[in-house]
Every structure is written in structure tokens, then in C-alpha cells.
Write a protein that binds this DNA or RNA. Structure first.
Length: 225
DNA sequence: GCATGATCATTT
DNA sequence: AAATGATCATGC
């Protein structure tokens, strides 16, 4: 007898109340509540925690493009942290568009849309903690400050200019102070179309935008530090 | 392949 | 130790 699927939260307050009720619970506890299988580790289940939290908050798991709670204008992101509350990983934002970028501005960008309002759920992520014992932290509903938005915009414009000028294969994860571009693919044989150095079409590895820890660390510290 | 969810693991 | 580049699962 499957348990009932949680309905989407109707209001921001309801979403936050649910998120606060998850705080302090272990993955084992929450997985049991929702009758979700708990894997040994995340090696072959990298999105497991994100899916667990989605289901536990009433987002439709395996959803389509758009924010997790589109009716509330809120994107959900789990972020693994260490014992000091610092992020252990970068945060994937969205796929980097490698073609069709003529005339696209920061204001219209997917990065800005995705990050307009984010519900951050910190989770214990240190690998020495067995997955079952890792706990969920207190939620943080965040909107970028003017300064944060300017930081992201500057990196985005630099990186998008390189893409538009056919320099995508010269982009490295070292570029961008707060926002970087790295591979986002099943493996290194995956290919997608991009603009080449001569302005022609080339095939290259799909890339994604990621928030560097230099961006998310202060964001978390301001609230939890 | 692309979009969802990210973390792994090699390199520096 | 930290960051970069590579990778894993799933649905369509």
C-alpha cells in the first residue's frame, strides 16, 4: 500500500513550514517516512538527496524544466556542507547555452531566472558520515542582493561573450570569480553544437553553469554563521 | 541529446 | 586539501 504523495505547498509559508520540519532529521528518518530506498552511498545515486528533499517538500519529482515550485517562483537547491557549515561542492545552476545567444542579456538569462529565489537546504555532506546518518539543516530562503547579482552578471557576461565569439573550448573552470562553466554531461563522449573559432558550428562537450564555493560560502555564513 | 537531480575522483 | 574536469541515474 503506497503512501500518499505529498501535494505541492500552496504558499511560501507552507513550503517553509515543511522545510523547517525536515531540519534536524536524518536521511534514514526522512527516507523511511516517504518509503524511499536508501542507497549505501551516492556514487551511483548523485541526485538522491535532491530527490529526497523534493519529494519531502511536495515538489513533483522528476519534473520538467521550470522552477521546482513554479507557482511560488521558488527553486529548490540542496547544498552539502561540512561541520563548519561551509559548502563542500559547487552548485549546478543550469546548462550553458552554446548557440542562439545573439542578443541575449543577463536579465533574460536562465542563470538569473533560476537564481531569482532559491530555497537552500543545507545537508551534511562529509563522506565519512554514513549516508543514513547524515542530517538535514535549517532552510534558507534567499534572493540575490544587488551586490550578488552584479557579481554573477559580471562572470556571466564574460563567459557568454567567449561562447558567442567561438571560444567555448578555451573556457576553463578557473574563469569567473563566482560563476563558472564546467562540463555537464553523461561522459566525455557526449557532444552538443556550439560556435567554433571561425564562426561555424562545431561539436563540443555540453557545459553547465555552476556557483563557486566563493559565492555560496558567504551566502550561508551570513545566515547561519 | 537534453533537462532534471548533483557528486565523484583525478589533478593540481 | 581544494578545485577542476569527469561522471552517474532517470525520463522522454
Amino acid at each position: 500500500m503506497p503512501i500518499a504523495l505529498l501535494s505541492p505547498p500552496k504558499t511560501e509559508a507552507e513550503l517553509m513550514a515543511r522545510a523547517q520540519q525536515l531540519a534536524g532529521k536524518s536521511f534514514a528518518e526522512v527516507a523511511a517516512e516517504r518509503q524511499i530506498h536508501l542507497p549505501e552511498n551516492l556514487q551511483r545515486n548523485k541526485g538522491w538527496v535532491g530527490n529526497l528533499i523534493e519529494i519531502s517538500l511536495g515538489a513533483q519529482a522528476g519534473s520538467k524544466a521550470e522552477q521546482d515550485f513554479a507557482h511560488l517562483g521558488i527553486e529548490l537547491k540542496t547544498i552539502p556542507i561540512n561541520a563548519q557549515g561551509q559548502p563542500l561542492e559547487t552548485t549546478f545552476v543550469c546548462v550553458a547555452p552554446l548557440t542562439g545567444n545573439i542578443g541575449v542579456t543577463w536579465a533574460q538569462s536562465h542563470v538569473r531566472q533560476k537564481l531569482a529565489k532559491v530555497l537552500w537546504i543545507p545537508i551534511e555532506g562529509e563522506r565519512h558520515i554514513p549516508l543514513a546518518q547524515r542530517r538535514i539543516g535549517a532552510p534558507l530562503l534567499w534572493q540575490p542582493s544587488r551586490e550578488e547579482e552584479q557579481q554573477l552578471q559580471a562572470d556571466w557576461e564574460e563567459l557568454m561573450e567567449m561562447i558567442a565569439l567561438g571560444q567555448v573550448e578555451k573556457i576553463t573552470a578557473r574563469q569567473g570569480e563566482f560563476l563558472q562553466i564546467r562540463p555537464k554531461a553523461a561522459n566525455n563522449r557526449a557532444l552538443t553544437t556550439a560556435i567554433g573559432p571561425s564562426g561555424d558550428k562545431i561539436l563540443t562537450l555540453p557545459r553547465g553553469f555552476y556557483l563557486k564555493k566563493q559565492f555560496t560560502a558567504p551566502l550561508l555564513a551570513r545566515h547561519f554563521g
